[in-house]
């Protein structure tokens, strides 16, 4: 999952590219219809020849290209999966010592605890990219799960987290998905029915 900033940049870039493509299409139609009288006739690229043939152009083009490539690489890196790692500082820290909690261990421990208490399968945890103090637990609901048990389990885990971190340094959120798909067996049984 990406941060809100990355998502915002992606959305801006997508809209900007879309508007640029629409502008190209409108220019092409203007070229054909000649409504403004500024475009018309066939395209003449002779004016670009002195620039393309100049000694400085390949270097300028390479410089701009490499700069764009660096931007592209930075954007690709921004989309890499965010691992749950690092520590959260607890309010009990003071000049005599720091008290920190390992986020990865915390996320897996909370997921395990939720999996024990609730009728869910495949519980896993991670911290939110935008808020490392929030542990998001996701799991598949068990077939035949009871709503009351689900609500009680979530409340119990929240209560335990609040007891462990009374200053609210860690918060938890639960995401329930549908039942996990049953693994398909390759074995089949043929049954012949005789009338």
């Amino acid at each position: 999952m990406t941060t809100r900033r990355t998502r915002g940049t992606d959305r801006f870039a997508t809209v900007a590219l879309g508007l640029a493509l629409v502008a190209v299409a409108l220019l092409a139609w203007e070229w054909r219809l000649d409504l403004t009288g500024r475009l018309g006739g066939s395209l003449d690229t002779d004016a670009a020849d002195p620039v393309l043939d100049s000694a400085w152009w390949p270097w300028a083009w390479a410089g701009v290209g490499v700069a764009l490539g660096v931007v592209g690489l930075v954007r690709l890196l921004a989309h890499r999966p965010r691992l749950t790692r690092g520590t959260s500082r607890l309010a009990a820290s003071d000049p005599t010592g720091r008290l920190e909690v390992d986020r990865s261990s915390l996320a897996s421990t909370l997921a395990e605890r939720w999996g024990e208490l609730a009728p869910v399968t495949g519980a896993r945890g991670r911290v939110l990219p935008d808020a490392p103090d929030v542990v998001e637990l996701t799991a598949n609901v068990e077939v035949e799960a009871d709503a009351e048990a689900l609500v009680h389990a979530a409340a119990q885990v929240e209560r335990e987290v609040a007891e462990a971190f009374p200053e609210g340094a860690v918060r938890v959120r639960f995401l329930l998905s549908g039942p996990a798909r049953q693994p398909r067996t390759r074995r089949t049984t043929d049954i012949a029915v005789q009338e």
Binding site: A13, T14, G65, L76
Partner: peptide
């Protein structure tokens, strides 16, 4: 978000531009 996949394509295109340049 849908724009995330488009963002990756745009980023790859920019890297391609660098290679061509």
């Amino acid at each position: 978000h849908r724009a995330a996949a488009i963002g990756v394509v745009i980023a790859l295109t920019l890297v391609g531009v660098a290679v061509v340049a």
